[in-house]
Each structure stands twice: as structure tokens, then as C-alpha cells.
């Protein structure tokens, strides 16, 4: 598969206030069918998309945060979170959902999908991509 490209979806908006977070998630799920090397980055207010215990009953919008747990089934296993963005918002990894994927080559062992990166590491990762889609 020589034509596999590195696709990164960069998420920078809080969920529900705008449509960006949901649109990104839908594009990721659709795009997952194309067997590319996919990763997701959560930067700036995008980190709020991954918070656990989201409860949308009061705002009457579907709680699509549950769908992030399905990303592993879609073979999306690389989720990068910017440390500085967490710090700036008084958040820690513990405030985020625990997302996992199952490694087929390792007897389906459950592995963590989320990796917290420094801004410099995130910048390096951007550089490595063939395609960057920004939401």
C-alpha cells in the first residue's frame, strides 16, 4: 500500500457552540473507510471535546462525546492532546475520557489512544503530515 497518506484532523473548537466538532468527527468516521494513516489532534478549546461526563440533556443536543469511544473500532488509534492547551484551561488528562483501541497484532490487547504532547512535539507532528484538515 504505497499510496497511504498521513491524514491529521486538527480540532480547535469547544463542542456544541459551533458545528465544527461534530463535523470533524463525522468526516473522521467517513474517512476511516479509506485505509489511510489517520490521527486526530486536539488543541486550544478543542480539548473540551474530549472531556468526560458531558451531559447535554439541558441543551437538547445529541451527546456525541460517546462516539469518540468508537474511534478504536474504526481503527483510529492516534489521538494527540496538547499539554499547554490543557494547562491553560486548568484541565488534566484525568478530566478527559479514557479512549482505547485493540491491537490486532498483540492479541487484541487494549491500548491507550490518547497521548499528551508538548507544543513543540505537536508542531513536529504537523510537519510530518501529507494532509492536515483543520476544524
Amino acid at each position: 500500500m504505497a499510496d497511504v497518506k498521513k491524514f491529521m484532523y486538527v480540532n480547535r473548537k469547544a463542542p456544541y457552540g459551533t458545528i465544527y466538532a461534530l463535523e470533524s468527527l463525522e468526516v473522521v468516521l467517513i474517512g476511516a473507510a479509506f485505509d489511510q494513516d489517520v490521527s486526530l489532534a486536539f488543541v486550544d478549546d478543542g480539548v473540551y471535546q474530549l472531556t468526560k461526563d458531558q451531559d447535554t440533556t439541558g441543551v437538547g443536543i445529541k451527546n456525541f462525546s460517546k462516539t469518540y469511544s468508537a474511534l478504536g473500532d474504526y481503527e483510529v488509534s492516534k489521538i494527540y492532546v496538547d499539554q499547554e492547551s490543557l494547562d491553560e484551561r486548568g484541565l488534566t488528562l484525568d478530566d478527559l475520557q479514557h479512549l482505547v483501541w485493540e491491537d490486532e497484532d498483540d492479541d487484541w490487547a487494549e491500548k491507550d489512544s490518547i497521548r499528551v504532547l508538548s507544543r513543540a512535539e505537536m508542531a513536529d507532528l504537523f510537519e510530518e503530515q501529507d494532509v492536515v484538515l483543520s476544524f
Binding site: 468526560k52 461526563d53 458531558q54 441543551v59 443536543i61
Partner: peptide
């Protein structure tokens, strides 16, 4: 409050002195 909870933030995380209101 409803917008706060939708984003996974509970009332006890709010800055002291900010009042949480419903609709």
C-alpha cells in the same frame, strides 16, 4: 449551567463568586 454540563464541566469547577443559573 446546562451549557457548562454539556461541556463536561461541573458546577464545582466554577470560579468562586460566579453564580450558576438555569434557563
Amino acid at each position: 449551567g446546562p451549557d457548562l454540563r454539556a461541556r463536561g464541566m461541573s458546577e464545582d469547577r466554577v470560579i468562586d463568586g460566579i453564580k450558576v443559573v438555569d434557563y
